[in-house]
Design a protein around this nucleic acid. Structure first.
Length: 384
DNA sequence: TATGATT
């Protein structure tokens, strides 16, 4: 057997509902009017840009200060129970998920938004006037009426890449607004320079509007742009894959165990002597219980790895680079349609000397029948 | 197949 099961993960990652009888119903408790129909449109609010660490209790307390709440919920990611897999060398390689239960290993993360349904429409109005724009830590919260829940507004979020770096959010909205009503938009920027990464998101009011925008804009060049843009449906952030969770687990462990890791890690100049070591061992795993998973930190040295096989996955990068020190992120670049590796990937390491050692050791390393080329990532260059 | 990017 190649794999052994290390831990049975038991988890519950349901959306929390603080009160009301509607814990397992729609996002918001229905208000039954005198004629028997439900209409939340004047009482039900959506709150966006909440601080990551805000709890359900704090959320309820803040909005409860305005008036009586019929129900409220902070939306969190849904993680089901599953298994962690280690191979015999002690490397965590896979997480598989199954049905839901309690989870001592992962805390589900707030998705940064929630719903509040007031008893009195006047309180909903007051909450918008009082709390919209409120600054909480680094966030400025947005409070607005929630659109009625329906299938037609689901999956209307688009991921856009290849945007000209000069394009503003407003210009992007102008480009997309011909296809429907835009609910939200965003352009991602480099954390250090503040320059656009050429990647953005557009949420339409309706799914069919988003579909039309894909048909009309995917592969098209915006006016004056040199390159065509890619437009596709965005991933749903609440549906984490096992690989994404594995990545998060490694990142959590790498950050938490940076100290001990340095002592445990041996450095080998010869790739053939690579120890099978990863940040997560049985010992360190036991104290991972209850950690809050957070996203990648961004800082570090980015390494380009070329000549990976089409079957390569993230675990091979963890296994190759983990022995050299703190690895915060790995990424295998895959073809969108085939999901096969396009032959290259990226690894982010925290410390320069460890990254340099990894490059010196792994460049030219024979992996199966391929010889890897490993270097610091450079900006995109065309062949002379 | 030689430098991505998923709030």
């Amino acid at each position: 057997r190649e794999w052994i099961i290390l831990w049975r993960i038991i988890s519950t990652m349901e959306t929390q509902v603080s009160n009301g009888p509607t814990a397992n119903s729609l996002p918001n408790g229905p208000v039954v009017s005198t004629n028997g129909s439900t209409d939340d449109s004047k009482t039900n609010l959506i709150v966006n840009y909440l601080p990551q660490n805000m709890t359900q209790e704090e959320f309820k307390s803040l909005f409860g200060s305005i008036g009586e709440i019929e129900s409220c919920k902070l939306v969190r990611d849904k993680i089901t129970g599953g298994f962690l897999f280690l191979n015999f060398s002690g490397i965590l390689t896979e997480i598989k998920w199954e049905s839901t239960k309690r989870n001592p290993l992962f805390h589900s993360q707030s998705l940064g938004y929630g719903f509040v349904n007031y008893v009195d429409p006047n309180d909903a109005d007051k909450a918008i006037n009082t709390l919209n724009g409120l600054k909480l830590q680094t966030k400025t919260i947005k409070v607005s009426y929630a659109r009625p829940s329906s299938a037609s507004i689901r999956d209307a979020n688009l991921y856009v890449s290849g945007l000209p770096k000069t394009m503003s959010q407003k210009e992007m909205e102008q480009l997309f607004s011909q296809y429907g009503r835009i609910i939200t938009s965003r352009i991602l920027v480099d954390q250090v320079t503040g320059i656009s990464r050429g990647v953005g998101f557009i949420r339409f009011d309706k799914r069919n509007e988003a579909e039309e925008a894909i048909k009309g804009l995917n592969g098209q060049k915006p006016l004056g742009a040199a390159e065509p843009i890619t437009v596709k449906f965005a991933n749903n952030p609440s549906q984490k894959t096992g690989q994404a969770l594995l990545t998060q687990l490694y990142q959590t462990a790498a950050r938490r165990y940076t100290g001990p890791l340095h002592h445990q890690t041996q450095r080998f100049s010869s790739p053939s002597l690579l120890p099978r070591f990863s940040p997560i061992t049985i010992d360190s795993m036991t104290s991972l219980a209850g950690v809050n998973l957070t996203g990648p930190t961004g800082a570090g040295w980015c390494i380009f790895v070329y000549n990976l096989s089409p079957e390569a996955d993230e675990s091979v990068l963890w296994q190759l680079f983990g022995p050299f020190g703190a690895v915060t992120n790995v990424k295998v670049i895959r073809d969108f349609t085939t999901n096969k590796c396009k032959g290259f990937g990226f690894v982010t390491m925290t410390n320069y000397d460890e990254a340099a050692m990894a490059i010196a050791s792994l460049n030219g390393y024979r992996l199966g029948d391929r010889v890897l080329q490993v270097s610091f990532k450079t900006s995109k260059q065309h062949k002379a």
